[in-house]
């Protein structure tokens, strides 16, 4: 199974979650996260740009780092690019493990690192025009709490 996908197409979280443990009876836990485009004030839509080639490598490196830290089984990361509307799914992270502690922690770790290490950029459309989203310090703090 492919671990990392960058795609314009939507995904079905239920299908992805089921695939994480299908045929693997050693999996005792699956934790997952779905990120959505939030209806935020005047934002009508957003476009996600990325760095083809580097994006896939960066996501794979984040998954590899998670595998160093926790005992994981299957892992799946999907990140959408292109133009998305409020309510649309942006990102899926799913982690299967033997035990829930590893699955919960790795899922959160992958999201925190993705936010600061994977080369994606959001541009919001508002009635006043388009604007690039500024990086948030809270995302840096969230990533740093995992240490080196």
């Amino acid at each position: 199974m492919m671990e990392v996908s960058v795609q314009t197409a939507d995904f079905e979280a239920g299908v992805e979650i089921a695939a994480l443990s299908a045929g693997d009876d050693g999996a005792g836990a699956v934790a997952s996260f779905v990120g959505l485009v939030r209806a935020d004030g005047a934002v009508r839509a957003m476009t996600l740009e990325h760095y083809p080639g580097m994006t896939e490598q960066a996501l794979a490196a984040i998954v590899a780092e998670a595998r160093q830290r926790w005992q994981l089984r299957r892992v799946r990361v999907i990140h959408r690019v292109g133009r998305l509307l409020p309510g649309d799914r942006i990102v899926f992270v799913g982690v299967a493990a033997s035990h829930r502690g590893d699955a919960f922690a790795a899922c959160e770790f992958i999201m925190d690192y993705l936010k600061t290490q994977a080369p994606f950029w959001k541009k919001e459309e508002t009635p006043e025009g388009a604007r690039w989203v500024d990086a948030r310090e809270s995302d840096d703090i969230a990533a740093r709490r995992w240490g080196d």
Binding site: H50, A58, I90, L114, K115, F120, V133, A135, D139
Partner: peptide, 29 residues
Amino acid sequence: AAVNQQMVGMDAPVADGDEVAFFPPVTGG
């Protein structure tokens, strides 16, 4: 910045034929 698709600091070396990217802080997820 990134050199050959790896995020690096400003003190990282650059060599002939490298791919060097400059960009703002990332905002995915």
